[in-house]
Write a protein that binds this DNA or RNA. Sequence first.
RNA 1: GCCUCCAUAGCCCAAUGGCAGAGGCAGACGACUUAAAAUCGUCAAAGUGUGGGUUCGAGUCCCACUGGAGGCACCA
Length: 835
Amino acid sequence: MTEQNAPETAENEYDVAAIQEKWLPVWDELRPFASGKPGDERPKKYVLDMFPYPSGDLHMGHAEAYALGDVISRYWVQKGFNVMHPIGWDSFGLPAENAAIKRGLDPKGWTYDNIAQQKSSMRRYACSFDWDRVLVTSDPSYYRWNQWLFLEFYNKGLAYRKNSNVNWCPSCQTVLANEQVVQGLCERCDSVVTKKALTQWYFKVTDYADRLLDDLDTLEGNWPSKVLSMQRNWIGRSHGADVQFEIEGRTEPVTVFTTRPDTLFGATFMVVAADSALAAELAADSNPEIQSAFVKYLEMVKQSNDIERLATDRPKTGVDLGRFAINPVNGEKLPIWASDYVLADYGHGAIMAVPAHDQRDFEFAKAMNLPIRTVVDIKDENGVSIDPAVGEAPTTGSGTLINSGPLDGLAKDVAIEKIAEILQAEGKGKKTKNFRLRDWLISRQRYWGTPIPIIHCGNCGEVPVPADQLPVLLPSAEGLDLKPKGTSPLGGAEDWVNVACPKCGIAAKRDTDTMDTFVDSSWYFLRFLSPNSDEVAFPVEEAKAWAPVDQYVGGVTHAILHLLYARFVTKVLHDLDYLDFEEPFTRLLNQGMVLMGGSAMSKSRGNLVALSEQLDEHGVDAVRLTMSFAGPPEDDIDWADVSPAGSAKFLARAWRTANDVSSPVDIDFVAGNAELRKATHSFLRDFGPLIEGFKFNVGVAKIMELVNALRKAIDGPAGSGDAAVREAAETVAKALSLFAPYTAEDMWQKLGHTPGVALAELPEADLSLLVESSIVAIAQVDGKVRDKFEVSVDISESDLRDLAMSSEAVKKAIGDKQVANVIVRAPKLVNIATK
RNA sequence: GCCUCCAUAGCCCAAUGGCAGAGGCAGACGACUUAAAAUCGUCAAAGUGUGGGUUCGAGUCCCACUGGAGGCACCA
């Protein structure tokens, strides 16, 4: 065998699989991302990825999320921070239970098998997690503190039980929070959600509505504006007034909420929610025909689901209750109707109807032939007054009050203030506000969740489980019927349900419902501070040092639910003196979804891309790099549009440059090739701000640019021994370690360094290398480029102006036009404006 | 119905109000090779969805429209 024919040695070949195998055990030993070392003086930073639900192995969506979270986390490690980047599993919940029912297994086994699988995939994926900080919400050591949290809320009066019409999923056979009903469908199984009257546990999130809304302002600029606007929308604060109406034949007045108290003189009837207690009472005291008509109507209303109820073209229906309310400002008798267009659980479940100035009231008045009285004069574009009483539509804008006694002649906004004063003075109303947000329904009639730590006693009523008896362990699933049947499977665990009352000792029963898993995830970021503590949920001092989370990374699917609940719980814990901050997540990045062929991946669509296959085919680094390079992180990635093979090709190209560096490891860079040094340092200047601004795709492009310059230098006159070549190659290895840790580590070793490129800091850019002595200035005429010339960077404005004015090309462009203005931006540009 | 966001080469995407191109994919051509792959190199390709406006100057700011994505919705 001759020298020329020698096969390529492994040393010159970028062997992805071998590199991955090589570095995993080294990192296990090195543990570069441990954050709890005593005496660690580095400044702290808390970077958190939303923890996964263990529903199988990791998928492409996880791969994107963790690739991007890792870029941020590794960036701060490299900047010299003590970064806490933990991981856990949100492991209670319905999928485990449903899988268990389907296969006749214990949900526990299924869950923990999946966790083991995901954990091993995360290790292979080179996630920079601190493996000393791991939690699993279905572990008793976690949910014990979930129960603690519940009791803290309970003792503060923020957890309570009430009977009301709740959202019910007939397929999951459990109640749902408002937030889990999407377009009238169950967010999990897409069944049509119905209503059911049940006694359920709630957290009083409405007590915090104002703060949850107002504090969003403090997140402006650090959270995606989309999420802020979604949360504002969801909380939905309206300002208006409560107005009291006397009811004929009833001692108590009825209060209504309105955002338009100025239109009070235009009220021609009142409407109460058909499914409210008030409607039933008013009907019951009316004559028998009305009573039976009401009962019939109510029956119809109860049978309709949200899909029908929300249809926009649905005609208005209702029943005249034969009762009358008295308008507090003019003593008029207003007929009272019951209808389903008024909601029982918003405001007071009753409204004053002003058909002239409200779309829904207008439709109802037309349908029921009720009077319409115009009290706000609004002119059309021709200056003619629009009168809804004789027209086809109500007017809802601003105008001048008419037919309104003391309000006549006032503008809408002034009238709102004036009427509020009048009502307040007479004790018949006051300014107030209302929220779209409802209290958080947290009980579920399912098995695989945190048992609610309450005991129901015939003598004592609700009795909290004493702290020293926590956790209330979930009974074994063995022998329990997990099939959904409308009541909790825990009811079947008789040994577990029947206990002595902790207060009086008589036979009592445990609460058999479990908690919504969103309770588990509403505070998990605090548990990472001491994931194994038996003493506390989280240590207050550690929370002061580490929390709030500096950078949170996750999908926009949680823009309302999870983030709102976590914000709420944080505020409560703040008020209980456990935390010194009020917002849990200082900065938020929402990554997009990974699509395939234009739509979300799903088995039924047949467009599923298996992460494990992508990793086998292209390697971990190529997949990670593709996730970062595809585009802005918040945009969706269509896997059909991107090229992991191209990423792999680039990584091999970068890797080879390390092979080609022939200078000693301690060479002084100062003597290196000036052009390449300039490329390296302009990269160093740009890279950090790009990463901090989440412009990962641009950051990767800059690395590619540097690699191209480096390749040219190696193959060109500078050669492999040039000091700048080493400087550039080391810079590439360090920067690449955020995106492609295996390749970067291997480059680092080839460059003669000891393993641990993740901890190697990128140097500051030497700006003196970037100073240009000359620059190409452009001369424009009316904004169009007409000439260019090389000028000194410190050319004076007048010199540059003279240079431009004397250019032949410029003179030609001006022609015989008159020069109106000359803008000079030395040293870059002159623009000559002509008349 | 109300409220956000988006639109740049065939494709994915860059561009502090100042020469539309940083980077990549796909493509063409060349070098290397007996040949191919790999590698290295060169090239071609949009005037920024449409119509107005502000400005010395607009992809960028404002208005309207078209198309697309998302959120809220009988919330008084």
